Amino acid sequence: MTEYKLVVVGAGGVGKSALTIQLIQNHFVDEYDPTIEDSYRKQVVIDGETCLLDILDTAGQEEYSAMRDQYMRTGEGFLCVFAINNTKSFEDIHHYREQIKRVKDSEDVPMVLVGNKCDLPSRTVDTKQAQDLARSYGIPFIETSAKTRQGVDDAFYTLVREIRKHKEKMSKDGKKKKKKSKTKCVIM
């Protein structure tokens, strides 16, 4: 069974824990209790493949930012979460993405942009803004509501699919490099 290491990042209060708990335990946590770091595991079937999701729910508070490099190193894919009623959390996505790329030393890291709290009427981040940002990053965008469960499975499952595509691409690139290195030079 394939294991996928997913990391949920975003500013404090955007609903990272609520999304994760909704996926794992099928219930909505409405009281806000700032996370330092929590880890969850769940076995699911995605596109006919049974897999184990190892999900790291991270601290959004700035005082825990020193811990970010460590979990970013171990993560295979990242859910970059903002709240649709919090423009600052949307603007912060850029910083999370840049930090992930720096730590992973790669421009090509599996990510999904997630606009959470889409059940709320007080939207300050337009869907088109988020779609445009995701398009500019070359990553999928999904709106979710941890409260109603809308888009929750889709967000995590899409990230797994992005990781699969990335692994497939990397193995193809690896095979191309191996083929090239088999060419021999004969000096007579």
Score class of each variant (00 low, 15 high):
residue 98 E to T: 06
residue 73 R to T: 10
residue 82 F to T: 12
residue 99 Q to D: 00
residue 89 S to L: 09
residue 66 A to C: 08
residue 108 D to T: 09
residue 107 E to V: 12
residue 117 K to L: 15
residue 79 L to S: 00
residue 112 V to L: 05
residue 76 E to K: 09
residue 99 Q to E: 12
residue 106 S to I: 11
residue 98 E to D: 08
residue 122 S to N: 10
residue 77 G to L: 10
residue 64 Y to M: 10
residue 125 V to S: 12
residue 101 K to A: 07
residue 115 G to M: 11
residue 83 A to Q: 12
residue 119 D to S: 04
residue 110 P to E: 03
residue 72 M to F: 12
residue 73 R to D: 12
residue 121 P to H: 08
residue 86 N to H: 11
residue 89 S to V: 07
residue 77 G to M: 09
residue 110 P to A: 04
residue 111 M to I: 13
residue 110 P to H: 04
residue 126 D to W: 08
residue 67 M to N: 10
residue 70 Q to M: 04
residue 109 V to C: 07
residue 94 H to D: 14
residue 74 T to W: 10
residue 98 E to W: 05
residue 100 I to G: 01
residue 65 S to A: 08
residue 120 L to A: 13
residue 79 L to D: 00
residue 111 M to N: 02
residue 108 D to E: 11
residue 104 K to P: 02
residue 86 N to E: 10
residue 113 L to K: 01
residue 69 D to V: 01
residue 76 E to H: 14
residue 63 E to T: 09
residue 71 Y to N: 13
residue 82 F to D: 00
residue 111 M to P: 00
residue 65 S to K: 06
residue 123 R to E: 14
residue 110 P to S: 03
residue 78 F to A: 02
residue 90 F to Q: 06
residue 113 L to H: 02
residue 67 M to Q: 13
residue 66 A to P: 13
residue 106 S to Y: 11
residue 116 N to A: 15
residue 101 K to V: 04
residue 76 E to G: 06
residue 78 F to H: 00
residue 111 M to G: 01
residue 109 V to P: 06
residue 107 E to L: 13
residue 119 D to E: 10
residue 101 K to C: 07
residue 126 D to M: 07
residue 87 T to V: 09
residue 101 K to R: 12
residue 107 E to C: 12
residue 78 F to L: 06
residue 110 P to R: 02
residue 76 E to Q: 11
residue 71 Y to T: 14
residue 90 F to T: 10
residue 73 R to C: 11
residue 83 A to D: 15
residue 102 R to W: 00
residue 64 Y to F: 09
residue 96 Y to C: 09
residue 87 T to D: 11
residue 109 V to K: 03
residue 107 E to F: 14
residue 88 K to C: 09
residue 94 H to G: 02
residue 70 Q to C: 09
residue 64 Y to A: 15
residue 111 M to F: 09
residue 88 K to V: 04
residue 104 K to T: 07
residue 64 Y to V: 14
residue 99 Q to C: 13
residue 71 Y to E: 14
residue 93 I to Y: 01
residue 125 V to A: 12
residue 64 Y to L: 07
residue 79 L to E: 00
residue 66 A to I: 11
residue 74 T to L: 09
residue 114 V to T: 01
residue 125 V to F: 12
residue 117 K to G: 14
residue 110 P to N: 03
residue 78 F to T: 02
residue 86 N to F: 02
residue 126 D to T: 08
residue 114 V to I: 14
residue 109 V to M: 06
residue 116 N to H: 15
residue 116 N to R: 00
residue 66 A to Q: 10
residue 118 C to M: 07
residue 83 A to W: 03
residue 125 V to T: 13
residue 80 C to V: 14
residue 72 M to I: 13
residue 82 F to E: 00
residue 110 P to M: 03
residue 74 T to R: 09
residue 124 T to V: 11
residue 72 M to K: 05
residue 89 S to E: 04
residue 112 V to C: 01
residue 107 E to I: 15
residue 100 I to Q: 05
residue 102 R to V: 05
residue 117 K to C: 15
residue 117 K to Q: 12
residue 73 R to Q: 12
residue 63 E to G: 10
residue 112 V to G: 00
residue 69 D to M: 03
residue 112 V to H: 04
residue 66 A to F: 04
residue 68 R to Y: 07
residue 101 K to P: 04
residue 87 T to A: 14
residue 79 L to N: 00
residue 106 S to P: 06
residue 121 P to Y: 12
residue 99 Q to Y: 07
residue 102 R to Y: 02
residue 83 A to H: 06
residue 69 D to T: 04
residue 82 F to V: 09
residue 97 R to T: 13
residue 110 P to I: 02
residue 75 G to V: 15
residue 99 Q to H: 08
residue 108 D to R: 05
residue 115 G to E: 05
residue 79 L to M: 09
residue 125 V to Q: 11
residue 82 F to Q: 03
residue 102 R to D: 02
residue 100 I to M: 06
residue 65 S to P: 13
residue 104 K to D: 01
residue 125 V to D: 12
residue 70 Q to Y: 04
residue 107 E to N: 09
residue 63 E to Y: 02
residue 67 M to C: 07
residue 79 L to R: 00
residue 79 L to K: 00
residue 118 C to A: 10
residue 81 V to L: 10
residue 117 K to I: 15
residue 110 P to K: 03
residue 83 A to E: 15
residue 111 M to E: 01
residue 116 N to G: 09
residue 74 T to S: 13
residue 103 V to N: 09
residue 90 F to S: 02
residue 106 S to F: 11
residue 68 R to K: 09
residue 100 I to F: 06
residue 97 R to N: 07
residue 76 E to R: 05
residue 117 K to F: 15
residue 103 V to S: 07
residue 65 S to V: 07
residue 121 P to K: 07
residue 104 K to H: 11
residue 98 E to A: 07
residue 110 P to D: 02
residue 115 G to T: 06
residue 63 E to F: 02
residue 126 D to P: 05
residue 119 D to V: 02
residue 107 E to R: 06
residue 75 G to P: 08
residue 115 G to Y: 05
residue 63 E to V: 05
residue 78 F to R: 01
residue 102 R to F: 08
residue 114 V to C: 07
residue 122 S to Y: 09
residue 84 I to K: 09
residue 82 F to C: 13
residue 120 L to I: 06
residue 112 V to E: 01
residue 74 T to H: 12
residue 88 K to R: 07
residue 126 D to Q: 10
residue 84 I to V: 14
residue 114 V to F: 03
residue 72 M to C: 07
residue 97 R to S: 09
residue 124 T to I: 09
residue 79 L to Q: 01
residue 117 K to R: 11
residue 113 L to F: 13
residue 80 C to L: 14
residue 77 G to W: 00
residue 81 V to T: 07
residue 94 H to Y: 05
residue 76 E to V: 15
residue 123 R to T: 13
residue 124 T to M: 12
residue 73 R to I: 05
residue 70 Q to I: 08
residue 86 N to Q: 04
residue 74 T to D: 15
residue 78 F to Y: 08
residue 83 A to P: 14
residue 101 K to L: 10
residue 64 Y to G: 15
residue 78 F to E: 00
residue 72 M to Y: 10
residue 115 G to D: 02
residue 124 T to S: 13
residue 124 T to E: 14
residue 108 D to L: 05
residue 106 S to L: 13
residue 69 D to A: 05
residue 106 S to Q: 09
residue 107 E to D: 12
residue 124 T to R: 09
residue 105 D to V: 11
residue 104 K to M: 11
residue 125 V to R: 09
residue 103 V to E: 03
residue 84 I to E: 15
residue 97 R to P: 05
residue 66 A to W: 03
residue 120 L to F: 12
residue 110 P to Y: 02
residue 67 M to K: 12
residue 119 D to Y: 02
residue 76 E to L: 14
residue 126 D to N: 10
residue 70 Q to G: 07
residue 98 E to I: 03
residue 114 V to A: 03
residue 123 R to M: 12
residue 108 D to H: 12
residue 112 V to Q: 00
residue 94 H to P: 02
residue 123 R to H: 12
residue 125 V to I: 12
residue 120 L to V: 08
residue 126 D to F: 09
residue 66 A to Y: 10
residue 76 E to A: 13
residue 101 K to W: 05
residue 104 K to W: 11
residue 92 D to G: 06
residue 119 D to A: 01
residue 119 D to N: 06
residue 65 S to I: 07
residue 76 E to C: 15
residue 115 G to S: 06
residue 124 T to K: 11
residue 123 R to I: 10
residue 64 Y to R: 13
residue 126 D to V: 08
residue 71 Y to F: 12
residue 122 S to G: 14
residue 107 E to K: 05
residue 68 R to T: 12
residue 87 T to Y: 09
residue 63 E to H: 02
residue 105 D to W: 11
residue 75 G to A: 15
residue 64 Y to H: 13
residue 66 A to E: 13
residue 64 Y to C: 10
residue 81 V to K: 01
residue 117 K to E: 08
residue 86 N to G: 13
residue 115 G to V: 11
residue 120 L to K: 06
residue 101 K to Q: 12
residue 88 K to M: 13
residue 122 S to E: 14
residue 120 L to D: 06
residue 103 V to G: 06
residue 118 C to K: 07
residue 90 F to C: 06
residue 114 V to P: 00
residue 115 G to Q: 05
residue 88 K to S: 10
residue 100 I to R: 01
residue 87 T to E: 15
residue 120 L to W: 09
residue 113 L to M: 07
residue 118 C to D: 08
residue 92 D to S: 03
residue 77 G to S: 02
residue 113 L to W: 06
residue 92 D to R: 03
residue 97 R to C: 15
residue 91 E to R: 02
residue 101 K to G: 05
residue 107 E to T: 08
residue 69 D to W: 01
residue 67 M to E: 15
residue 124 T to Y: 10
residue 118 C to Q: 08
residue 86 N to Y: 06
residue 75 G to K: 03
residue 65 S to M: 07
residue 125 V to H: 11
residue 80 C to A: 05
residue 97 R to A: 15
residue 70 Q to T: 06
residue 115 G to R: 02
residue 118 C to I: 11
residue 81 V to G: 02
residue 97 R to L: 15
residue 67 M to I: 10
residue 109 V to F: 11
residue 94 H to I: 04
residue 124 T to H: 13
residue 122 S to A: 11
residue 79 L to I: 12
residue 125 V to K: 12
residue 103 V to P: 04
residue 87 T to F: 06
residue 80 C to S: 02
residue 75 G to Y: 14
residue 77 G to K: 00
residue 90 F to N: 00
residue 102 R to K: 03
residue 68 R to P: 14
residue 108 D to C: 07
residue 63 E to K: 07
residue 123 R to L: 11
residue 110 P to W: 02
residue 86 N to D: 15
residue 123 R to V: 12
residue 104 K to R: 14
residue 121 P to G: 13
residue 118 C to T: 09
residue 96 Y to L: 15
residue 121 P to Q: 11
residue 80 C to M: 14
residue 74 T to P: 07
residue 77 G to R: 00
residue 72 M to T: 09
residue 107 E to M: 08
residue 99 Q to P: 02
residue 110 P to L: 03
residue 111 M to C: 06
residue 78 F to C: 04
